[in-house]
Design a protein around this nucleic acid. Structure first.
Lengths: 211, 211, 211, 211
DNA sequence: CATGAATGAGGCTTCATTCAT
DNA sequence: GATGAATGAAGCCTCATTCAT
């Protein structure tokens, strides 16, 4: 598409993307009909196809926008940190808060990752995130702060911890009050686990942190 | 259903489940038509509805069977270990190998978890796994081997690391030769990360492990 | 498609082709909806797609069948003639009668020829007819019976006369009684025009014909 | 419509008719969307509906204009001829050249003739052409120059030959260089066939012509 | 037990036409 | 005069499910 849009048009498009994202997140790609989306918005069916080439196209736009937004949040979060380990901590916390604030997009991304059709797109975004983290991990290793392991696998593991805790705490717990606290708890658990793992290290005490 | 089946019938049912599982894993629930499944097997459509109440029912059977199988593999793996930390290691390694040997079921589970319809079923299985791990984690903490954190969150984090590395190494890498090695590497990375996390712990040297 | 069909299935398919052909001929390809075709036959919409891949596929089958039938009629008609000129006459007469007996298919072919989508298919059939006629025209020229002109252009001209008269007499006149006579008259006019053209040939008298 | 148009408006209208005619000719009536036409011209959709009542109306205007133009070409061509047979020759040649110069309109007319919706309009034009030719044919017969046959059928046959050869040579051959020659050859073949038909007339030699 | 034919609701998409700006 | 956004009917096609044979 990439039609030239008037301000009113741009607003319409945004509203469509948002409505669609929520529906897709709640019901999945296939069970969400274009009719349902436009009905939610109270507009005619043609509107949808004025702004998007297809249902598939709309879904992809949402994914791309979501990933751009998440990455921006991560970038902003680590801008002020210079210590490699703290940068990673900040990235984890920022991710967790973004996932909390945009729970429906989180669900959407998880969903899209398991769909052959959209997996490449999501994968691209994740590889980007991994790539963003690599320099800091490498720097940490070089500085003797982080364990000498395959940096790529470390990055993947960090993402895995973050996602799993986000899923457990944010998606499966519902949206009741106190969910902000939950996000905070999930962030701290992720940071803690990623830093020190499971084991008590003899001689290391329980010093809050060393980085 | 749970019809009484002749031996030949039981075989048919198994073949259907297997064919369906592969199709579902490859294409997703909605894009896989019942027609495609029975065509793959070269039988009529009636057969499918003889053994299953519906497409939905078939999908659920696959999920339940897969989870039962994974859990059995985990149980077998830790049967011989008595040290809590080693039990966890063994569970991680067993999971990784099962996920490798049953890649299509792994994909299927990941997929089902993001589908509102089947998520409760998958969640039930995961909570079971978490519950299975809890006593060992609690024992480890009590014995002063594991860090004193919320055991449930620790369990979730372990699963997250395992899944993320499995996904990165098993699903996204393709099935070429040497994928066994890949599984092995993924298992070791998961174990290592879960034990010690990212940080170099001063005073702990690089001792292989302490557990 | 080319599905294996039971006798009942084959009959269904034939009924669909016939119903569709009449609708297509009357209303054109685009204005004829699949819904209209199946409604005419009183069956469900799915039936259509059980027998055909698409509306387009169905249309093509009709065209191919029609052309096969017309060509067979032409072949049968000239089988008994050995004189080249008489063979051409017989072909013209047979064509005219087929076009009369299958007026709806005639209309369909004329229509398809003007549709970029189907023109190649129709063209192929016409070129076949031209190719069928060429040997007889060449033989006639070699025997000194026919004028020495480009045989291909002669064949095209013959088809043109036949079609134009068929259209004028068969399609545009309606189907009232006496339309058999009309076909006969059209056939004679076509034969006569193709043999001798417009001009009175001095010295040739008005001898009925010479071939 | 028949709105009073400013000069600029008249130009716009002409441009629309021309763009539309080419699109309609290339793709057919139904597959050509109003959107495609106005996009080709780089104007908004409103423009189209300012100049035409509907897509149908636009198509008809094109047909009427085309037929008016063809008829004018024929009229001009025979204005200088007084011999009936030569008049017919001239008409055939003029038609062939017009069809060549306006190939897209030729295709359009052929197409419209097979569409129930527009056939009456096209038929009206053809009957006009037949009517135009009739007096000359009658005069030729009366003068003993043309064979004594139903003049109307003769006229139809002449049109049929012209159209068939035009189609074979102009439309199906593509627009490469040398297509002017092709038109010339087609015209000569049509004239020749219409004059003398297929048969060698004994005693008539191969005299270039007799009319 | 098995098959293949049938059903019909429902999904995605197109498009002629209208109209506020 | 012109534009682009909007409408909604209508079209093609898919597919889970049923059932006569």
């Amino acid at each position: 598409m990439s039609r030239r849009l008037t301000p009113r048009g741009a607003e319409r498009r945004r509203a469509l993307l948002d409505t669609a994202a929520r529906r897709f997140a709640a019901d999945g790609y296939h069970p969400t009909s274009v009719a349902a989306i436009v009905d939610d918005l109270g507009v005619g069916k043609g509107v949808f196809y004025w702004y998007f080439d297809s249902k598939d196209d709309c879904y992809r736009q949402i994914l791309v926008d979501a990933q751009r937004s998440l990455r921006a949040a991560q970038r902003d979060a680590i801008a002020d940190e210079h210590d490699p380990a703290r940068r990673i901590d900040a990235g984890i916390r920022a991710s967790m808060h973004w996932l909390h604030d945009n729970r429906h997009l989180f669900a959407l991304l998880e969903q899209a990752r398991t769909d052959e059709r959209f997996a490449p797109l999501v994968r691209r975004g994740e590889q980007q995130t991994v790539a963003d983290a690599l320099p800091h991990i490498r720097a940490g290793i070089a500085a003797g702060l982080l364990r000498r392991e395959d940096p790529e696998l470390l990055a993947v593991a960090i993402l895995g911890v973050t996602d799993a805790l986000a899923r457990a705490v944010l998606l499966e717990a519902g949206d009741g009050p106190g969910s902000d606290d939950a996000a905070e708890r999930a962030a701290e658990a992720a940071v803690s686990f990623c830093r020190r793992g499971l084991l008590v290290v003899p001689g290391a005490g329980t010093a809050r942190d060393t980085a």
